[in-house]
Write a protein that binds this DNA or RNA. Structure first.
Lengths: 335, 335
DNA sequence: TTGAAAGCGTTACCAC
DNA sequence: GTGGTAACGCTTTCAA
């Protein structure tokens, strides 16, 4: 790598001041056509590319945002990331990606490291940190948006799915098909979505006049393996269970596998409902009934909200998407 | 967001020079325990966080690398990204993610924008740009590593899968089960992996004494929809086909669906082989025979190689992984 | 062991 | 229209 061409190299070569070059680059101020052409020609010839770093120092803007996700390998997040990245790209912004791997310490360190990098704003998906810690970490950021997690709107905008409503849809669907012995595999205890879904599910049960504890709850990692282990345990402890409501599709697929191992047929013996409607859901056998969520749109909306906040514009500071139940073969009532 | 605390704020508050503060932060030079403790205390109290931007300008190092992928929503890439991000994170590096969405112009712009951001190095997955363009774009970067694409080692290190070998494995498996009318759904024409797999497949055919053109080739987008369309067309044009070798698992799943539509049973009528062994492969019905590739390891290896290059260390400049054939239900010979 | 000054590459502000 | 100078927040180099 040869040494980078700087703005003064261009200025010298073009016999103008670096101010003039800067003006040409940034299309600011009046410049004679002739000078502009000359400068552009020199820029071209020297292959000059302005340093975002120097610019960032001078302007206090980096045109970079941070994205924090639990795990980009979890199929829920790549589409959200695409929605964010596409939106950001169109506006000349770059995206720094951080995985927390469900580790609160890493989540905290990631948010701080993004602060060090002076990103213009951050988007955090499914934050797992405790509320006070999260708020403290948000504070120093110029702008922030959370996905599926709530904080005071002064600290961050929120884009979320109405998880309680979605869980209600799923429970009502199961109850309509006479599945009353419902097990709930809730995912990580630190997931706000998991908590809200539990509440929504219990509310739906109560409205149907059923005792709340007829819904059995277990926690697990939000992975295939987590779902497998949790389903085994739940069914072993409650053999009467005839339906499982799962934290996400991955967990549901684990549950599917547990049922297969235990010779329980799905949906005849046990109905299974997933969440997120990832690509997987339509492809497994039996295809998964799932609570569908517009992932790409959520990402794009979060990015849009973040840019409003960066720009200091007043705008909505909460967007809530209503999920939809996609009925497939893993529950009764498909065809 | 209140104004950031700077190094001189700390210096003033601690009654030392900013040099001293800098030394404490960077653990450089000798400093009396007393001063160090004092400075650390003030840093803590003021909540000072050094600006990576200013640091980057002064040191010409940003502790950031760029990652360019065709599409993070394609399940092949998230695991690679995890491998890279984990490795980078441990060394204090951040990762800027760029999606090219299979658009060469965006790929080019992404590589340039990473140059502007003065990343310390870049990793490009499955670059689709023409060779001369790619080389020109690589040139200005301090360090670069390509995944599944080859350039002169002076320009970039290479981590790749032996695609030709993998395709050979698949073809031999099919031939061993008397499938000689093989169709090949090759993915994007600009994919070097696709080209190499075609060569490997044809070589395997030739070694079995079969005419090379008994392998019919079609291109497609590397998606579920792309595979569906390509398989429909290929089978319609060549009804004698009894096996399909697919660019990746997504394409193979599209092909699976095409067969279902055409009332062809898999694997009895048509055997299907995918590639990459993504999560999907084991979960669809019938489960997919696929050429398996160590995605996370590839990512980690690429990151490792990149850091060697950034550090200017001599090291391997090509790592080749041998893929493995995972036989499942979509081809004969499973149980 | 500590400090002063220069420099990194840009933009902002004020002259001309 | 254009240029000079300071400033952004840090590290590096040289002196003390």
């Amino acid at each position: 790598m040869k040494n980078k061409v700087t703005i003064s190299d261009v200025a010298r070569e073009a016999n103008v001041s670096s101010q003039t070059v800067s003006r040409v680059i940034n299309r600011k101020g009046e410049i004679s056509d002739e000078t502009r052409r000359l400068v552009l020609e020199v820029i071209q010839r020297l292959g000059y590319r302005p340093s975002s770093i120097a610019r960032g120092l001078a302007t206090n803007r980096t045109f970079t945002i941070g994205l924090v996700v639990p795990d980009i390998a979890n199929p829920f997040f790549p589409e959200i990331a695409r929605g964010i990245e596409d939106f950001a790209w169109e506006r000349g912004y770059g995206v720094i990606l951080c995985n927390t791997v469900e580790d609160p310490a890493r989540e905290e360190a990631a948010i701080k490291s993004l602060e060090d990098k002076r990103v213009d704003g951050i988007i955090i998906c499914s934050a797992r940190l405790a509320q006070p810690t999260l708020c403290d970490l948000l504070q120093p950021h110029r702008a922030a948006v959370l996905i599926n997690r709530t904080v005071p709107s002064q600290l961050a905008g929120v884009v979320r799915v109405d998880d309680a409503y979605g869980a209600g849809l799923a429970v009502n669907h199961l109850l309509a098909h006479h599945r009353r012995e419902i097990g709930f595999i809730a995912g990580p205890a630190s997931s706000q979505s998991g908590v809200l879904r539990a509440e929504g599910a219990q509310k739906a049960m109560a409205e149907a006049g059923l005792a709340i504890d007829s819904l059995r709850k277990t926690e697990c990692k939000p992975t295939h393996a987590g779902g497998l282990a949790a389903a085994r345990e739940l069914i072993a402890g409650h053999p009467e269970i005839n339906a499982l409501l799962c934290y996400n599709d991955l967990v549901a697929i684990g549950a599917l596998q547990a049922c297969r191992e235990m010779n329980l047929s799905v949906p005849q013996d046990v109905a299974i409902v997933g969440c997120d409607d990832t690509l997987l859901a339509g492809l497994v056998q039996p295809a998964l009934t799932t609570v569908s969520v517009p992932k790409y749109e959520i990402g794009a909306a979060a990015a849009g909200m973040l840019f409003s906040r960066i720009a200091g514009e007043a705008g909505r500071d909460e967007i809530v998407y209503k999920p939809e139940l996609i009925v497939r073969q893993s529950t009764p009532g498909c065809q």
